[in-house]
Design a protein around this nucleic acid. Structure first.
Lengths: 205, 205
DNA sequence: AGTGAGTTCAAACGATCGTTTGAGCATACG
DNA sequence: CGTATGCTCAAACGATCGTTTGAACTCACT
């Protein structure tokens, strides 16, 4: 091998994240994308095979780490002697907010929200096949902690909470935080809002 | 005037609603759209001026009625001697669910959710200019009913509730209802879920 | 019957899309 | 040194995009 250029691939993935968040998957063209990344137009098809494969890799790069952190945090919560609902929700929410540490991690949540709103079948299938087990594990935990809820009632609430969180986190990083508040504090306050809301949405009488 | 064909315009608007919901604004081409509507390709530019203007009209056709119903329902609630939070939320939610009476009314909520997730500036400005006063009026009502909440706390909760409702209603009409449940009952049950969730999300301690 | 405004139509416009090609360049290995 | 491999590049491919054009058609009105 010569260059083994993971550099070009990474530049493309980074630019794709920005442009997919801004213009959507259809709206962002490979020419805009490769120009922003400073690479040749043909590089996308050479390194990824197609635009659709690139989209999948954009998700993979973030979701592998994100959902890994979530499951890790959930396991840690389950290791304690008593499991609290808010801790389970924190295990789901905090890793997502931590993404904003990365350069464009916050933008990725916008990409995710787009994919959520587009009811594109192939993309949903890809996400379901690769990361469906995460949501299933959290759902199982919710069912255990909220035994008073019927199955359909629980699914309704999880769906609503998911919608709320996806929407809110897609806007995170956009809202200007007041001066005098550190980024860490800001993220902490946001996590607090989301967790308390999710607890109320799931467990209200 | 000869034809004064409101017929062609309506066929286009109907097909646009379906295809925008299914493929997105960029993903749905005027050729697919006019073919589905059974009209000539040039008809869109003749009757609407451009594709972007067509998008605006798709929103106008539904949102004028939808937000009108919402304000009407809100006025009716405010006319009573005491205003309850769940009634205000019902005034916001029920008109949206009633859209599913219409042929493709339920699909329109998908279109709306898409516009919500895409952070397209020109579309957001259009919606804000034309229908921003509705959200402002409801927000004012929420502030009155929840005086214990700080301004920022209230905005957080409204944002989260809005995200949840938009997501949920964009999926309404997709979920198959159990046999033996009438469409009216189904809508009533859905409204109940959404309203109780929204009450909990807004007013939790 | 004839005029004219409103509408539809097939055809074409230039632009841009995702993808492919083949030559050129770099580096590692015999 | 020579050659093979991985990668980049400019250029082109056919397809499809939104939009425009000018002729054909419809129908109310004089």
């Amino acid at each position: 091998m010569a260059g083994s250029s993971t550099l070009t691939k990474e530049r493309i993935l980074g630019a794709a994240e920005v442009l997919f968040a801004r213009r959507g998957f259809d709206g962002a063209s490979l020419r805009q994308l490769t120009a922003a990344a400073g690479v040749n137009l043909a590089a996308v098809n050479y390194h990824f095979g197609s635009k659709e494969k690139l989209v999948e890799q954009v998700f993979r790069r973030r979701l592998d780490a994100l959902n890994g952190s979530r499951l890790e945090a959930l396991a840690k919560v389950n290791g304690r002697d008593e499991t609290r609902l808010e801790d389970v929700l924190a295990a789901y929410i905090r890793p997502a907010l931590d993404l904003s540490n990365d350069d464009n991690g916050a933008l990725f949540m916008r990409v995710l929200a787009r994919a959520f709103a587009e009811h594109d079948d192939s993309l949903r299938q890809f996400l379901s096949e690769n990361y469906g087990h995460v949501m299933r594990q959290f759902t199982h935990e919710f069912a255990r902690l909220l035994p008073q809820l019927s199955k359909s009632e629980l699914y309704w609430r999880i769906d609503l909470v998911t919608g709320a969180l996806t929407h809110a986190m897609s806007g995170f990083g956009m809202i200007q935080r007041k001066s005098g508040v550190s980024e860490h504090q800001h993220r902490e306050q946001t996590a607090d809002h989301l967790i308390r809301f999710a607890v109320a949405g799931l467990s209200h009488p």
